[in-house]
C-alpha cells in the first residue's frame, strides 16, 4: 500500500469471524498531511466491514477534531488500504467463513 504517513493496524487479533474489527490509527509522518493533526495519539476504533466505509470513519474523525478537513482523503485511503488487506487475508485464510 502507498505510504500515506498515516498508519492503520489491527488493534486485536483477527480470527475472521466477526464483521466488526478493532483498528488503531496514528500519524507516522505529519509532513504528509495538509493540516495539523490534533496530537500524537493512536486512535482506536471499531469498524464494521459489512456496513461501514472508510470514508464514514474518516469524516467522523474530522468531525471529532482529530484531523483537518483537507486530510479527509488521506485518512480514508489509509483506512481503506488496511481494510482491503484484512479482507484479502480473510478470503485467503478463511475462505469458508466468508
Amino acid at each position: 500500500a502507498e505510504d500515506t504517513g498515516v498508519r492503520v493496524e489491527l488493534a486485536e487479533e483477527d480470527h475472521g469471524r466477526k464483521s466488526t474489527i478493532a483498528l488503531r490509527l496514528w500519524v507516522e509522518d505529519p509532513k504528509k498531511l495538509k493540516g495539523k493533526p490534533k496530537d500524537n495519539g493512536a486512535i482506536e476504533f471499531t469498524f464494521d466491514l459489512e456496513r461501514e466505509t472508510p470514508d464514514d470513519v474518516a469524516q467522523e474523525m474530522i468531525d471529532s477534531g482529530f484531523f483537518h478537513e483537507s486530510d479527509m482523503k488521506i485518512v480514508a485511503k489509509s483506512i481503506r488500504d488496511r481494510v482491503a488487506l484484512i479482507q484479502w487475508r480473510r478470503e485467503r485464510i478463511w475462505p469458508v467463513l466468508q
Binding site: 509522518d29 500524537n40 495519539g41 468531525d63 482529530f66
Partner: peptide, 27 residues
C-alpha cells in the same frame, strides 16, 4: 498510561492512547 475517549455524535467511540516511541518514524 493516559487514555482519552471521544464519542462522535453518530455513536462511534474513539479511544486515544499515546503512541509508543518505537512506533513513531524518525524524521
Amino acid at each position: 498510561s493516559s487514555l482519552t475517549q471521544v464519542v462522535h455524535s453518530a455513536g462511534r467511540r474513539f479511544i486515544v492512547s499515546p503512541v509508543p516511541e518505537s512506533r513513531l518514524r524518525e524524521s
